[in-house]
């Protein structure tokens, strides 16, 4: 389990000043902490593709924004990836909740996307990491390095209960 405040401190140390997205219950604690944060502002977007637009605009203005979304949003977001973030080679860090796994079977609305989440990311050509456990800093270090080196979108998958 990773404490929300630790993640936010990490992101703030890595020069992120803005965040945006559409909530997922897996990020409830993180979003509460974000609301209290003096270092990172959160913009409540109405859609995930809008959130990509905001983050890309912020980057073009020379500042860094990350996204927090549910994996269902990976389906909404397609054209914003392929014809904006990826096309213009804009680095973008996205936390994606990994819903639809075994303990989520009582939420059928997440099952199909849960089954194809990694295939969807592979199809977009987006590198991803499943962040859990003690080595989360190392995972984020690696993801951010890849994001900067390739000027690319990177996703961090977050399963239920990982961020508290």
């Amino acid at each position: 389990m990773i404490k929300s405040i630790d993640i936010l401190n990490y992101l703030s140390e890595n020069n992120f000043e803005l965040s945006t997205g559409v909530p997922c219950s897996y990020f409830k604690e993180l979003l509460i902490e974000l609301d209290k944060s003096a270092d990172i502002q959160y913009i409540a977007a109405t859609r995930e593709d809008e959130a990509v637009g905001i983050a890309c605009g912020y980057y073009l203005g020379k500042k860094n924004c990350f996204l927090i979304i549910q994996n269902s949003g990976l389906a909404t977001i397609g054209d914003a990836f392929t014809s904006l973030a990826q096309l213009y080679e804009i680095p973008l860090l996205i936390f994606v909740s990994y819903r639809g796994l075994e303990p989520d079977k009582t939420f059928p609305e997440h099952v199909i996307m849960g089954n194809v989440t990694e295939a969807v990311l592979n199809a977009y050509g987006i590198p991803y990491w499943n962040m859990k456990g003690e080595n989360w800093r190392k995972i984020l270090d690696e993801a951010l390095e890849r994001m900067k080196e390739d000027s690319s979108v990177v996703c961090i998958l977050v399963e239920k209960g990982v961020i508290i």
């Binding site: 803005l18 637009g53 905001i54 605009g57 203005g61 020379k62």
Partner: peptide, 13 residues
């Protein structure tokens, strides 16, 4: 998305 991109840019600059 042009309005969203404009929003992000306006916040950054």
């Amino acid at each position: 998305l042009p309005m969203s991109i404009g929003l992000g840019l306006a916040l950054a600059q």
